[in-house]
């Protein structure tokens, strides 16, 4: 069954335009000019119950605007949407009992108080019964390992600890859909993994639908089976992550620091990005040249340091657009 359905959804902002300088500033005061900006243009898709969807695209593509419309924060200019049987515009409050959201840039926790106080407050905002709240909190605290710092004021927590608490805050009322907007931004690998584990667990055990935007290729790869790419407010691609990965995530970037100046072998699939006497950076197309094979070809004795990275999500997205453009 579909948990989220969007049909021709659009959102247009009216932006004041104004020329440079005082003269134009005064002119715009008296007679302002407006320009219409289409943040989201006629997008349609649906997400099934229990599905984990990656909703990706470059900055300003319309991702956050779409999430904000689906959660009832923004009113769309056109089209229709249905989230768990509710219209987010008309039934915002009833819908909000059933959805949770973590916005990497916004906090639900009170800065000066321990997270447990904010949790208790949220339990009354969501009208959760005391016993249900206590068992839920215990479960989330165990899963996210919060017990150590539940009583520490939020201002004294590290970013990783704070984000784990943000997740707990959004999950207290056991939402059926979890909207995540850049949830792992700025986090270290350990915390990222813990959060991914939690999301997978919730999806498995509670059939939670997950709607995720992230610039982290790892998030997309590890969590989602389907990805929708949005650009300039329209759906550019809608495909299984496996295919996305096959088509676009097949590049690794290898950086080497060398003891002595030397070249590197360049079999098919390897492309040199940058070379200085004691450092080399190259990309490997793993479809053509498996990474293990390339590493075996290097002179291990001459390597002072090595890093292997996945290309940033931006590059992948760029590759998607390039591909689309080239493809017609």
């Amino acid at each position: 069954m579909a948990a989220i359905v969007l049909e021709n959804l659009s959102k247009t902002y009216r932006v004041k335009v104004r020329g440079e300088g005082l003269k134009n500033a005064i002119k715009s005061l008296v007679r302002p000019d407006y320009r219409e900006v289409e943040a989201v243009r006629n997008i349609s898709f649906s997400v099934n119950e229990g599905e984990m969807l990656a909703f990706i695209g470059p900055n300003g593509a319309g991702k956050s605007t779409t999430i904000k419309m689906l959660t009832g924060i923004l009113h769309p200019t056109g089209g229709s949407m249905n989230v768990l049987g509710y219209n987010p515009v008309k039934d915002r409050r009833r819908l909000s009992y059933n959805i949770g959201a973590v916005f990497g840039q916004k906090s639900q926790l009170s800065f000066h108080l321990p997270p447990v106080d904010s949790f208790r407050l949220l339990s009354s905002v969501y009208e959760i019964e005391k016993s249900a709240y206590e068992s839920r909190l215990k479960r989330l605290a165990d899963l996210l390992e919060l017990n150590e710092f539940l009583d520490t004021p939020v201002r004294k927590l590290s970013l990783g600890q704070r984000v784990r608490c943000e997740f707990a805050a959004s999950l207290l009322h056991a939402p059926k859909i979890l909207f995540l907007d850049e949830p792992t931004i700025g986090l270290d690998v350990v915390v990222k993994h813990r959060i991914r584990d939690l999301i997978i667990k919730l999806n498995k055990e509670e059939n939670t639908t997950v709607f995720l935007t992230s610039h982290d290729a790892g998030d997309v790869e590890n969590l989602c089976r389907r990805a929708i790419v949005i650009d300039h407010g329209t759906v550019a691609l809608d495909m299984p992550v496996k295919k996305l990965k096959y088509d676009y995530l097949n590049k690794k970037v290898v950086s080497l620091k060398l003891n002595e100046s030397a070249g590197i072998p360049e079999p098919p699939g390897v492309e040199l990005i940058k070379k200085t006497p004691y450092a080399v950076k190259f990309s490997v197309d793993t479809r053509i040249a498996p990474i293990s094979k390339i590493l075996a070809m290097l002179d291990a004795g001459n390597i002072a340091d090595i890093t292997i990275e996945e290309p940033p999500m931006e590059d992948i997205i760029e590759a998607i657009y390039m591909g689309k453009r080239e493809g017609g």
Binding site: I73, L122, Y126
Partner: peptide
């Protein structure tokens, strides 16, 4: 600043909340 988002996500009247 968009701080209102947090309150609009919650099942209460956003003004009072």
């Amino acid at each position: 600043t968009g701080e209102l988002d947090t309150y609009l996500l919650q099942p209460k009247n956003p003004l009072i909340n």
